[in-house]
């Protein structure tokens, strides 16, 4: 399946809480090119996760429209895959069984031996790509945090998504693992070409990974800056020293400063 253009028009989201209505998003307008890697950065509580949930069909907007390939989003759709901040592996399933869960939920029957072996092969290939060869029969509790999140990325990629959404996937990892995960993710992106929407609060992460970074304001969130990242791929360690990389990071910092999100003492 081919990736499609995403159109977000005047999207608003208001949550009804006990303390009254809270507006999370106000008038978000966006077009996302197919196959592009787009990051959304913003302060905590700015509604970036809300935006992703709306895009994934896990929640419905209170105003506006989201369309993928001209079709209005309502509910989770085939071709979309989501990676959450927590790995959300099922503790009672082995690594392989976790990765194959999407297939099991959608009609790969137990009886179909051929499908089962090819699917297992697919899962093993993915594990090899994320450096977890031979871990297929382990249980999640036997893995470290970084390994677990890799498995959850495999679970998303095995669905061959045309749109991959990631909600602060490296947020719970230590700095070094986090950096390694970025390199791994870029390699996977090269291999599994699809549109990626990546939610993060790390400016460097967003710039390093993306073709385009959307900067969001504090609540109610809206896109206040849209920055093209003109760094060629493949990107590597030296990319992070590149003057253009540093300029982009500086520019985004500047936006946060002018918004009052970042302030010098």
């Amino acid at each position: 399946m081919r990736s499609k253009e995403i159109v977000i028009r005047d999207v608003e989201k208001t949550f009804q809480t006990r303390g009254g209505a809270v507006q999370a998003l106000s008038k978000v307008n966006l077009n996302i090119e197919p196959l592009s890697f787009v990051s959304v950065v913003g302060p905590s509580g700015c509604g970036k996760s809300t935006l992703m949930n709306l895009l994934a069909g896990l929640d419905t907007p209170t105003g506006g429209v989201i369309e993928i390939g001209g079709e209005r989003v309502s509910g989770a759709q085939e071709g979309n895959a989501v990676v959450f901040q927590r790995d959300l592996l099922l503790e009672w399933r082995t690594v392989i069984a976790n990765i194959l869960l999407p297939f099991e939920l959608h009609g790969v029957t137990w009886l179909d031996r051929k499908d089962r072996t090819t699917n297992r092969q697919l899962a093993e290939d993915l594990l090899r790509m994320v450096g977890l060869e031979g871990f297929g029969d382990k249980y999640p509790f036997e893995l470290s945090g970084g390994m677990r999140q890799r498995v959850s990325i495999c679970r998303a990629l095995i669905q061959r998504p045309t749109l991959l959404m990631m909600d602060e996937p490296f947020g719970a990892l230590d700095a070094l693992t986090r950096e390694q995960m970025m390199y791994d993710l870029l390699r996977l992106y090269d291999q599994y070409k699809c549109t990626v929407v990546f939610i993060t609060h790390s400016i460097e992460e967003a710039v390093f990974l993306s073709d385009r970074v959307l900067v969001m304001s504090e609540r109610p969130g809206s896109v206040v800056r849209d920055i093209k990242i003109q760094l060629e791929r493949p990107r590597n360690l030296s990319t992070r020293m590149d003057a253009r990389f540093l300029d982009c990071v500086k520019e985004i910092r500047g936006v946060f400063q002018s918004q009052g999100v970042l302030a010098e003492v």
Partner: peptide, 21 residues
Amino acid sequence: KEMNMLAMSLRASKLQIFLYF
């Protein structure tokens, strides 16, 4: 709650959410 979101994103039915999650 997050697990429920995952199940939703995988388009699991109500019965599947019960049996698998």
